[in-house]
């Protein structure tokens, strides 16, 4: 319930109109949205119980490692009931398979639609979505870790909170099923990072400073 309260309201995309190239416009719009979401995500992370108690080095490591996974939980969640099998990055930024392909995001599209379908089949509750998002960050396998015991405790707290929630719903296998969806999330995030780095390096798509800094940390 604490995580639900601190969950930021969804952002709207600011549609780019600096170019006539439709695909480039889509990418620029998406990158601007991601940069703003990233800013919110960092503020959000600080409100997860236990996060601010970690060393600054570990806070940085977890975010540098897990930011894309944490952001994509929301995208997959919003995309799950999209009739046209779109990726719903924002209410006013919905990309279908063809648009993703044209923008160089075909592989990301496949992985995220797979994840969205999985979330839909599991009928995730909002509580489970925010728990997954926090766990993606806590479980980001940053290496090296400055204080492994503190990071472990942070993970254990979140795991306990999720288990407590599921046992109140008498769903014995639910926690395990949620955790088993994390590898697909990591795969999707890996594809997203590769796609945006490729767009930046090979197609010279300009990126905002924070987004570039976080992508570079993953490179």
């Amino acid at each position: 319930s604490h995580l639900l309260l601190t969950e930021p309201a969804p952002l709207e995309a600011n549609h780019d109109d600096s170019t006539d190239d439709g695909s480039l416009r889509t990418v620029l719009t998406l990158c601007d949205l991601l940069n703003r979401e990233l800013l919110l995500l960092i503020g959000w992370a600080k409100q997860i119980p236990g996060f601010s108690g970690l060393s600054l080095v570990d806070q940085m490591s977890l975010l540098q490692s897990g930011w894309m996974e944490a952001l994509l939980v929301g995208v997959a969640w919003r995309s799950q009931s999209s009739a046209g099998e779109e990726l719903v990055f924002a209410d006013n930024l919905r990309l279908d398979a063809a648009q993703c392909r044209a923008a160089g995001l075909a592989e990301l599209y496949e992985a995220l639609r797979h994840l969205a379908a999985k979330y839909q089949a599991m009928k995730l509750s909002p509580e489970e979505v925010v728990a997954l998002k926090a766990m993606a960050l806590a479980n980001s396998d940053a290496d090296p870790v400055d204080c492994p015991d503190s990071v472990q405790r942070f993970q254990d707290w979140l795991h306990e909170a999720l288990q407590e929630y599921e046992s109140s719903r008498r769903e014995q296998h639910r926690t395990g099923r949620l955790l088993m969806s994390l590898p697909l999330l990591r795969q999707a995030a890996g594809r997203a990072v590769q796609a945006f780095l490729r767009l930046h390096r090979h197609s010279s798509v300009p990126l905002h400073k924070l987004l570039l800094e976080m992508l570079d940390a993953k490179a």
Partner: peptide, 15 residues
């Protein structure tokens, strides 16, 4: 840390 200046600053700012 120099390389990750923005993240570092954002984390150090109070919430």
């Amino acid at each position: 840390k120099e390389k990750h200046k923005i993240l570092h600053q954002l984390l150090q700012n109070s919430t």
